[in-house]
Write a protein that binds this DNA or RNA. Structure first.
Length: 839
RNA sequence: GCUGGAGUGGCGGAACGGUAUACGCGUCGGUCUCAAAAACCGAUGUCUUAACGGGCGUGUGGGUUCGAGUCCCACCUCCAGCACCA
């Protein structure tokens, strides 16, 4: 009987229930047993699971089950990143509450996850919107506040008008909100920040400790952290007390600095223009820049607008008086917000100087155009060369001069060696309801006072008015806002902003180690056992955001003494997207395939197998219904082999699985044993070499093809039965991580599963081992090449040498055709592979 | 522009410097059937040939090597991320 649609329901439900009732995948600390922590990026509960989730979690599930069969003590938890704005939007739209909507979504997702047969330890399930979780968010925030890592400051911030809230730099993608794609504007607000920049150096340096992260993620983080070496240089303003400090990575070009440019937001911008006659023009320019959105200012034609301040500054190295300009291409948020302009050696400065008629001096000789005059240049010479017009530094290669000039300036008080970072502190306050309240109190006499830890959690009031129209909803809940100052007891006000949800997800992997602890954030001993996460799997969209924040939090929590790990995720796999018709599956495109429908027709195992087989996990996956049917057919072939052949074969092995005495393998038996061992080897190598599930599965298919060709039928005894049964057992064991329901069922049909025993599931059956000796055959097939082209094929004894091969090969008709009448210059033998003849 | 990655049959994709295209899909042919579906068996890079064979084939052009999809050099194209970061 083939595996039918009826069987799918029966089998999958049976084993899902079995795993749940027996808590098959419950993890506990087992000192002395090697642990393996596999984790997927937990989902935002927005409805049912979609194909992207299915792919992500299937990858993790295979890893978890494989590692379990390899004898590891596996931790594979699941939870929900449950705070966030969509819940508020849904609440408004559906006239419900964010909590109600979120818990409904969680229930739907949980059902979907169970249907897929994922091997989670359900006892560790958590949701970040539970008080028991966000209490520890608040605790962490207070720890940060007390260490000076959480602070409040007023500054220009990213504001999404559509979401009516602030955003972190990492949440602004191409000038737009990462969530709703609306254009982000700048707004001056007082907000809470986390001092991630305190860890800039180690966040950058420790990327070296992550050799098993994808190169592009490492590169993206490096770029984002953005360490630049160079110098701060002091330009005194002529006739004033003010000094403009500029940052440059090219101190070697300082003698070519012919003007200075300030960002429009620079505090000296307006001040320096006072009394110069340029004040009005400067004012207009600054206002115009302020009213132009950042994305507009940074995009478009990139023409470089600017205005002269009327002030002059002194180039400290040569005393040259240089004009001070304001330019919209200078960013206040990077370096010092002011630059020295070297138009001959920086393309942006070149364009600005041409636009505004500013002077230029060549200081690095272009080897291709020696002695070129600035007027003849059509673009800046940004490459290297030796210095000219640079006093005592003339003739030095510019890379050397970089260091020499910076040091010389530092020694003479003209500047200093400096490092600047692109990374900025993390703005985490959000003017939204559905998040963890920031546990701070404002007192008229005591100032900012943290909520005492004993009073945590600061609970989210269930009755806040959610309108989506801006302003923190919590500010409208009097009973929430009004509070007594914990220090002096006078009337005070609570902070009404909530935390960015990336705060919640920055440490959940630690909470999984001890998810129900209500005394401490987690038991350090438990974290010491499980951490770090051995394999993390998720989407590339978190390459910076979540992965950078989590690294930061881990370092902070390490510094609190709660964990010893420097990095939370040892290995990272970024899975590819699921496409249909060449496009990402999405509701708006209307090209989604509902996992439920696929499961109903083919079962979860077929869906899993298809997803794993159709592409390597990192690659994009094109949905292919025909491919799905192919995988369904394959499962059926395995099922049939067990049902119609295995269970009807007499067992011809002893208790240890060895053949009975006297049985001898013939050539065909040996062939099958070879295929069986080769399959184990190939699958194992595919798994160990970076989870190449597609090649692992194909290797099992090859073995299955060999089994189908093997001449053993029910009733055969002796070696036929031994080899066939052994091969089929191997197939089922190798497939168990991929198609767990069917594997459990077949294992049971084969009389192997004994519920209640030490190995209550095929997930704990030891992974098959291969015998290198079985892979060695008496004869091998080799190829013969003539001048690099294959001209013949030979079956020869293993390890045959030239003395044996030469006459054999040279007698071959196909080889002779290309050798006859020519001189053999070389005869190369690559043992057991080929011979190569050069004529 | 910078950074990272990728270019292999009709398609998804395999290939420790050693017989390119494993495995699967699709297609074609066959078995079974009254028929169809399912299942099973076989063929399937391309050009040429009656056939045996032969030529050409991993984005392009060079190079190293007995031998290159794989290593080196120079390009081209595509994807992704960052982008006036001084």
């Amino acid at each position: 009987m083939p595996y039918t649609t009826n069987d799918i329901r029966r089998v999958e439900e049976k084993w899902q229930k079995y795993w749940a009732v027996n808590k098959t995948f419950q993890a506990r600390e087992l000192p002395g047993k090697e642990k393996y922590y596999v984790l997927e990026m937990f989902p935002y509960p927005s409805g049912k699971i979609h194909m992207g989730h299915v792919r992500n979690y299937t990858i993790c599930d295979v890893i978890a089950r494989y590692k379990s069969q390899r004898g590891f003590n596996v931790l594979h938890p699941m939870g929900y990143d449950a705070f966030g704005q969509p819940a508020e939007n849904a609440a408004i739209k559906r006239n419900t509450s964010p909590a109600e909507w979120t818990y409904k979504c969680i229930a739907d997702m949980r059902a979907g996850l169970r249907q897929m047969g994922f091997s989670y330890d359900w006892d560790r399930e958590l949701a970040t919107c539970d008080e028991s979780y966000y209490k520890w968010n608040q605790w962490l925030f207070i720890q940060m506040y007390e260490k000076g890592l959480a602070y409040k400051k007023g500054s220009a911030v990213n504001w999404c008008p559509s979401c009516a809230t602030t955003l972190a730099n990492e949440e602004v993608i191409n000038g737009a909100c990462w969530r709703c794609k609306s254009e982000v504007v700048q707004k001056d607000l007082e907000q809470w920040y986390l001092k991630i920049t305190q860890y800039s150096e180690s966040l950058l340096a420790d990327l070296q400790k992550l050799p098993n992260w994808p190169a592009r993620v490492i590169a993206m983080q490096e770029n984002w952290i953005g360490k630049s070496y160079g110098a701060d240089i002091f330009f005194k303003v002529k006739g004033r007390e003010d000094t403009i400090t500029v940052f440059t990575t090219r101190p070697d070009t300082i003698f070519g600095a012919t003007y200075v440019t300030l960002a429009p937001e620079h505090p000296l911008a307006l001040k320096l223009s006072r009394g110069t006659g340029q004040e009005a023009a400067v004012k207009v320019f600054i206002e115009k820049a302020a009213n132009t959105s950042k994305s507009l200012r940074m995009s478009g034609d990139q023409r470089k607008d600017g205005v002269f301040t009327g002030a002059w500054a002194i180039n400290p190295v040569n005393g040259r008086e240089v004009p001070v300009w304001i330019g919209d291409y200078v960013l206040m948020g990077y370096g010092t917000g002011a630059i020295m302009a070297v138009p001959t050696h920086d393309q942006r400065d070149f364009e600005f100087a041409r636009e505004h008629g500013l002077p230029m001096v060549v200081v690095i000789e272009d080897a291709a155009r020696p002695g070129v005059a600035p007027e003849q240049m059509t673009k800046a010479h940004e490459d290297g060369g030796v210095l000219v017009n640079s006093q005592q530094f003339n003739g030095q290669p510019n890379e050397e001069a970089k260091k020499n000039i910076a040091l010389w300036m530092e020694n003479n008080g003209l500047g200093r060696v400096a490092v600047h970072w692109r990374l900025r502190d993390w703005l985490i306050s959000r003017q939204r309801y559905w998040g963890a309240p920031i546990p701070m109190i404002y007192c008229g006499s005591c100032g900012i006072v943290p909520v005492p830890v004993a009073q945590l959690p600061v609970k989210l009031p269930p009755d806040a008015p959610i309108t989506g129209e801006g302003g923190s909803p919590l500010a409208k809940v009097q009973a929430f806002v009004e509070v007594k100052c914990p220090k002096c007891g006078q009337a005070a006000r609570r902070e009404t902003d909530t935390m960015a949800t990336f705060f919640d997800s920055s440490w959940y992997f630690l909470r999984y180690c001890d998810p129900h602890n209500d005394q401490v954030i987690f038991d350090p001993a438990k974290a010491a056992y499980w951490m770090p996460v051995d394999q993390y799997v998720g989407g590339i969209e978190h390459a910076i955001l979540h992965l950078l924040y989590s690294r930061f939090f881990t370092k902070f929590i390490r510094d609190l003494g709660l964990t010893a790990v420097d990095e939370p995720f040892d290995r990272l796999l970024t899975q590819g997207m699921v496409l249909k018709d060449g496009e990402v599956m999405s509701k708006s495109r209307g090209n989604v395939v509902d996992p439920d429908e696929v499961i109903a027709k083919f079962g979860a195992d077929t869906l899993r197998l298809f997803i794993l087989f159709a592409a390597p996990p990192e690659d994009q996956l094109e949905w292919n219904p025909a491919g799905l049917e192919g995988n369904w057919r394959f499962i059926n072939r395995v099922w049939n082999a067990v049902e119609t052949r295995y269970v009807r074969m007499p067992s011809q092995t002893n208790a240890a699985g060895q053949a009975l005495p006297g049985a001898v393998m013939d050539a065909e038996d040996k062939k099958l044993e070879l295929e069986r061992n080769a399959a184990i080897k190939k699958v194992t190598e595919s798994m160990e070499g970076g989870f190449k599930f597609n090649t692992a599965i194909s290797a099992v298919m090859v073995l299955m093809n060999a089994i189908d060709k093997y001449h053993a039928v029910p009733g055969d005894a002796g070696m036929r039965a031994v080899c066939l049964n052994r091969a089929i057992e191997t197939v089922v064991l190798l497939l168990a991580p991929f198609i767990p329901h069917v594997a459990e069922e077949l294992w049971e049909m084969m009389g192997k599963v004994q519920p209640g025993t030490a190995n209550p599931s095929i997930a704990f059956e030891p992974w098959p081992v291969f015998d290198e000796k079985a892979l060695v055959t008496d004869t091998v097939k080799i190829a013969a090449q003539v001048n690099g082209k294959v001209r013949g094929e030979f079956e020869v004894p293993r390890d045959a040498d030239e003395a044996l091969l030469r006459p054999l090969v040279l007698a071959d008709e196909g080889v002779l055709r290309h050798v006859a009448g020519k001189e053999i210059k070389k005869f190369i033998v690559i043992k057991n592979k080929l011979v190569s003849i050069v004529v």
